[in-house]
């Protein structure tokens, strides 16, 4: 249970602040003394947090499904021909700066949530794809042979041997992807998505440092919460697979 404690605490802080930011009003009034409006009120923080989170979660789910499916396809006999190209795409694609990808999505899809979702999915796919390939390719061929020799079908080998063994590496890829996407979704405010980047952008435009701080604190907390969640998941994975693995392969 203790592995989950940081996540729970950070999530509670994040939730609490997004509902009751006005508690800190004296602090922000001290930072930004010359204005009457110190707390961002154009949209509730809870709504912005929810929207931000949904963008990241939806893109992570779609991206994970697509990337893992692609990775599995490229490592099967039927798709092997595509492996070099797919791994090249995964590595070259990551040299594209996320902001540029975000900006390029606008001329294609217009302003709003659609382009940012597309950009998040496409960009978030790459680290997951790369790690899926690395995880599946990193499995000792002898393990696969042994599983086939035990009479497993190729599908059983994939589901019960390869994916569990590659799982931790894939999870690390999802972690990278989510970290990047939380940051990119925040910048998405500039193209009309309602995220926690809104107060930051509004504050920068109006020269209101208090707004900027409120947005920045919530974005930072969201990133830390997500990161600690993945940290806990990875530790849990270690304990879990440590218990299961030895009787199966020795």
């Amino acid at each position: 249970m203790r592995v989950w404690l940081p996540t729970v605490l950070l999530a509670a802080l994040l939730g609490g602040l997004s509902v009751g930011m006005s508690v800190l009003e004296p602090l922000f009034a001290w930072v930004q003394p010359d204005t009457s409006r110190v707390i961002y009120e154009r949209e509730s923080f809870a709504f912005l947090l929810y929207n931000h989170l949904m963008l990241v979660v939806v893109s992570a789910v779609i991206g994970t499904i697509a990337a893992v499916a692609g990775g599995i396809f490229a490592t099967r006999p039927a798709g092997r021909d595509f492996l070099p190209l797919v791994s090249q795409i995964a590595s070259i694609g990551q040299t594209f700066p996320p902001v540029a990808v975000l900006a390029l999505a606008v001329p294609v899809l217009g302003f709003g949530e659609a382009p940012i979702l597309l950009a998040l999915i496409l960009y978030g796919l790459l680290p997951i794809l790369r790690n899926t390939l690395a995880g599946l390719e990193g499995i000792d061929p002898a393990v696969r042979e042994a599983a086939l020799g035990m009479g497993m079908s190729p599908l059983q080998v994939l589901l019960r041997v390869e994916l569990p063994l590659a799982g931790k590496v894939i999870l690390a890829g999802i972690r990278t992807s989510v970290t990047i996407n939380i940051a990119t979704a925040a910048i998405g405010s500039t193209i009309g998505a309602r995220t926690l980047g809104d107060p930051v952008i509004a504050g920068l435009v109006n020269g209101n440092t208090a707004y900027v701080l409120q947005g920045a604190i919530l974005i930072g907390l969201l990133a830390l919460t997500a990161d600690s969640l993945f940290e806990a998941l990875e530790r849990n994975w270690d304990r879990h697979s440590g218990r299961v693995r030895p009787p199966v392969f020795r």
């Binding site: 970290t179 940051a183 910048i187 930051v200 504050g203 440092t209 900027v212 604190i217 930072g220 830390l224």
Partner: peptide, 18 residues
């Protein structure tokens, strides 16, 4: 440092630097 989104870092640096 790497975990904190760039927009947040830029935002958090404004007050102390000014």
């Amino acid at each position: 440092m790497q975990t904190i989104p760039s927009l947040a870092v830029f935002g958090l640096l404004i007050a102390p630097l000014s």
